Computed example of a mutant assay.
Amino acid sequence: MNLIAIGDNVVDIYQDRNEMFPGGNALNVAVLSKQYGAKKTAFIGIIGNDVEGEHILRSLKQNQVDTSLIRIAEGESGKAYVDLNEEGDRIFIKSNKGGIQSKLKLRLTEEEYGYIKNYDVLHTSIYSHLDEELQQLKSILPISYDFSNHFTEELLEKVCPHITFAFCSGSHLSDHEIEELLMIIHRLGTPNVIITRGSLGVVMSSKNKRYSQGIIKANVVDTLGAGDSFIASYLTTHFNGLSIELSLEIAAKNAAKTCEVNGAFGCGKQLIG
């Protein structure tokens, strides 16, 4: 299978380690899908002309992700600062709100729409500012969309009619609220809904048929990127022809492995000073 991801990218700056790691939902899914067996992956996004942007670009190339359509713009790349809390879990401290990519809207050209046709699935996210393009993109290929935990009614109504896979973070929701969310997203037109629930595992509804998957134990070092790993693994195995049940199981295993390394996929770089 071939996967293309469009949108958000950052460097996660680990203050306790004085080290930065490439990240961002769309970028992570492109890299991890390639690691999990995709024949080809590509990433389209906007990065800054700074040291962080250079590191993002270099990391993508090292992981054999096609970067030919990335835009490099004058300004800061996206930066998110993270640290450890008293329990040893990673917590977000601050960010520059996406840097230059939040100031410039990514507009796809007709040539790029033609290029996208070479892929089996497109993944994007709430942070990717691609919502206006979804209606046109859905006529080309299936779309996967990560809502994180920010799925407002207005956003769901705007996005769900155009996507095939909806991923949501729902560890804060009750069983009743999970069921309501599944039904709302289906009613708006999305056939496949996957809700991650932290230690409670994953609930999936495919055309109103329910599936569940528990978590896999791991020697946790860093939980950042685990959700992105799950998405990348599920999409890759699913489009490689595996069953829903097996795809969910493999995705849970890969998410656990991601928790055992710093960053979503490594590629750390020490900061100067």
Rank of each mutant, 00 (worst) to 15 (best):
N2R: 15
I4M: 08
A5I: 07
A5P: 11
A5Y: 03
P22I: 07
G23M: 11
G23T: 13
G24Q: 07
N28M: 04
Q35R: 15
K40L: 09
K40E: 14
K40S: 11
A42H: 03
I44V: 11
N49M: 08
I56N: 00
K61V: 14
K61F: 03
Q64G: 03
V65D: 02
I72S: 04
E74C: 09
E74H: 10
S77R: 02
E87S: 12
G88V: 05
G88E: 11
D89G: 04
D89F: 05
D89V: 05
R90G: 00
F92H: 06
N96Y: 00
N96W: 00
K103G: 09
R107N: 14
E110Q: 14
Y113F: 13
K117N: 13
N118P: 08
N118S: 14
L122S: 03
H123M: 10
Y127T: 07
L130M: 15
D131A: 13
E133A: 12
Q135G: 14
Q136T: 15
Q136D: 15
Q136W: 08
K138H: 12
L141P: 10
N149S: 15
N149F: 11
E153D: 15
E154L: 11
P161R: 10
T164Y: 02
S169T: 13
S171E: 14
L173E: 04
D175Y: 01
I178R: 01
M183C: 13
I184F: 00
I184T: 15
H186C: 10
G189I: 12
G189Y: 02
T190D: 06
N192H: 05
V202W: 00
M204K: 00
N208R: 15
K209A: 09
K209H: 11
G214A: 12
N219V: 12
V221P: 02
A226P: 02
A226N: 02
G227H: 02
G227M: 09
D228I: 02
S229Q: 05
L235P: 01
L235K: 02
T236L: 06
F239T: 04
N240Q: 15
S243T: 15
E245M: 09
L248V: 06
N254D: 09
A256G: 13
T258L: 11
A264V: 12
F265K: 09
G266R: 10
C267L: 13
Q270P: 14
Q270Y: 12
L271G: 03
L271Q: 08
